[in-house]
Amino acid sequence: MSGATLPGTIHGVGLGPGDPDLMSVRADRLLRGASHVAYFRKAGRRGRARSSVEGMLRADAVEIAMEYPVTTEIPLHDPAYAACLSAFYTDVASRLRALAQNGTDVVVLCEGDPFFYGSFMHLYTRLRDDVPVKVVPAITGMSAAWTATGLPVTWGDDVLTVLMGTLPEADLTRRMADADAIVVMKIGRLLPKVRAALAAAGRLEAAWLVECASMAEEKVIPLAEAGDRTVPYFSIVIVHGQGRRP
């Protein structure tokens, strides 16, 4: 139709593990040229994604803060948790869809990689059939974590198993016992459970705790020495594989 407005594009831009130097050239270019920038954050907080791009955005960029309605207030397995977040993602997606349908490009900041346990995935599935959506991949937090240990994570035929600390302890133990190399994410207040599972699987002494990989506050310690404290959200447990080598 003559004079019709071409739709804008929603860009899910992976920022990497937290160090701006580890962003891709494409991510940097999109960020610096963006007229509209959206990012997730906890209510009352600035958000790690927004903080990591400080000084990179245009002075006139329109910022769209997408504030989670819940984080830890409702247990993950409570149906109310999924219902609340589903409504939130649907509402946010409708706002971004309206912008794109009016011809506006929007860059959505994504911690880590957008397609690896990221919130952007929930927007992607709601938007991809209606407006153009492009994704910029990124270095994951786990690759920054095993790099911080100074040791290769896989050798030869090692199989890497990625686990969530939110899994039941029995499931964690079973999968850890069967794994070569292990990454455990989403730890936070669940560190005692993760450590207990590793101990039951006979892998505790080989495990490392990496807090805030690639960031200024990075810390790397043997998990057996970490105690029962609550660790930062950006914490990952690594168990290195010991597979075939020439």
Rank of each mutant, 00 (worst) to 15 (best):
P79I: 09
V70G: 10
V62D: 02
P114T: 11
I236R: 01
T90I: 08
R128W: 11
Y124P: 01
G243K: 06
A38C: 14
A38H: 14
D19S: 09
Y124T: 00
Y81N: 06
L172M: 10
I221S: 15
M66P: 01
Q242R: 09
D180G: 05
V159N: 05
A138W: 15
A100V: 07
V136E: 15
L172N: 00
A34F: 10
E211Y: 06
E67T: 07
V184E: 00
F120C: 02
A226Y: 01
D157T: 04
K219C: 08
L191C: 04
L204D: 01
Q242I: 04
F115C: 12
L123M: 13
A34V: 11
P132G: 11
P17Y: 02
C110M: 15
C84I: 05
L6S: 04
F234N: 13
V25D: 05
N102H: 13
G14P: 12
Y89L: 01
I236H: 04
Y39G: 06
R128V: 14
A34C: 13
V183Y: 14
K42C: 15
L191K: 03
Y233M: 07
I221V: 15
Y89T: 01
R126F: 02
A145L: 02
R244D: 04
G44H: 11
M121F: 02
Y68T: 10
T161F: 02
Y124N: 04
R45N: 10
A216I: 15
G8T: 09
I64Q: 08
P75M: 06
S52W: 06
R46L: 14
M121I: 06
I74N: 14
G16I: 04
T173V: 07
D21N: 14
L57C: 11
Y233P: 02
A170L: 05
T154C: 10
T104S: 13
L99Y: 10
G243W: 03
V162R: 04
H36M: 12
A93C: 12
R128N: 14
T9V: 02
Q101M: 11
V131S: 10
H77S: 11
V231G: 00
G47R: 14
